[in-house]
């Protein structure tokens, strides 16, 4: 057990180090860091002095170490484009992204499980057929096209919902700006949340449906029916409960993808989140922001994968046996 956790931890650290190396290389080798910091009138001698003072003449390993040490404390320098500390920029936009990701995650899970159970129980009905067909279209449509189509229908033609921005926001505490507490904030959230969650919803729905169909054929379901339990108790108490372990794992893993795909959704809906910030930084080659985002997204993925792996290990005893066998 401990060996397994250690191995996974080491692997995660290696991944983070590799991403840090790429980020550092961006910092160090894209353009001249001095040129982007000082004006035209600074002499060559002064430049050399700054270079020395900043430690840019140190050996590569020393510089890399310093970079990691600063990154660990959240210091990624100053954005070239916006002239603000990168960490401040990211932190001020993080609530928008997290709220969007959370709401679409919940939507995807709730509707995914609901539709999945329904289509599994009413397999032949035309409603199930419609849901399955629509889900197929949902999977094959690229995310940005879903967003554009939703804007067209609900914002331009019907004019029910706003097409961009977060609406009104209020502060919770010192820096968490939320849109969940105002009406326009909630209205603005609907279309982006659907866009972002649709793919994950279809994924969860198909998974729940397949697992339900599998479980409904098992002996203990037949036994539960033989005991005279109501349909409701059989379907939800016994069948659904046993499908949820893989579903929760997949949903957990998908949280990373949701945060990643928020880049696309945020750009379509001009949502002021971290993803939109990253796209702008790629367009303007704003290296500090790119480097920080790279590290952030890698950290999110590594942490989520680590947690899911450990949960799996804790939940599924078969995995433990497999590992033991593989080692010997």
């Amino acid at each position: 057990m401990i060996a397994f956790i250690l191995r996974r931890l080491v692997q995660s650290v290696i991944v983070m180090l590799a991403v840090a190396l790429v980020s550092f290389a961006l910092f160090r080798f894209v353009g001249d860091p001095i040129a982007s910091m000082v004006g035209q009138e600074v002499t060559l001698a002064e430049r050399a002095e700054i270079r020395e003072a900043l430690g840019l003449n140190d050996p590569f390993i020393v510089q890399f170490w310093n970079f990691i040490a600063r990154a660990a404390t959240g210091d990624f320098g100053i954005s070239y484009r916006l002239q603000q500390p990168v960490m401040e920029l990211i932190l001020s936009r993080l609530p928008a992204t997290l709220e969007l990701a959370l709401v679409s995650g919940i939507l995807a899970f709730a509707f995914g499980v609901g539709f999945g159970v329904y289509t599994a129980l009413r397999r032949g009905s035309w409603v199930s057929g419609t849901i399955m067909t629509v889900s197929l279209i949902g999977v094959s449509l690229p995310t940005f096209l879903i967003g554009v189509l939703l804007i067209w229908v609900f914002a331009v033609e019907l004019q029910w919902l706003p097409s961009f921005g977060r609406g009104e926001t209020v502060y919770i505490g010192n820096w968490w700006r939320t849109g969940l507490l105002t009406e326009s904030g909630r209205a603005s959230l609907i279309l982006p949340a659907i866009t972002l969650g649709l793919y994950q919803m279809t994924l969860i729905m198909r998974l729940v449906r397949a697992e339900m169909l599998e479980v409904l054929r098992t002996d203990y379901i037949k036994f539960a029916r033989a005991r005279g339990l109501s349909n409701r108790a059989v379907h939800f108490g016994h069948a659904l409960k046993n499908t949820l372990v893989p579903v929760i794992t997949i949903t957990g893993l998908q949280m990373g993808s949701i945060i990643a795909f928020s880049i696309i959704t945020e750009t379509v809906f001009q949502w002021p989140g971290v993803g939109a910030l990253f796209i702008r930084s790629v367009q303007f080659v704003d290296v500090p922001v790119m480097a920080a985002y790279l590290m952030l997204i890698a950290l999110v993925f590594v942490v989520i994968n680590l947690i899911v792996d450990l949960l799996y290990y804790a939940v599924d005893p078969r995995l433990r046996v497999d590992r033991a066998n593989a080692k010997s």
Partner: peptide, 11 residues
């Protein structure tokens, strides 16, 4: 692809 493109564009 997006991240690789961004990084490569920087270089």
């Amino acid at each position: 692809a997006l991240l690789i493109f961004g990084v490569a564009r920087g270089f």
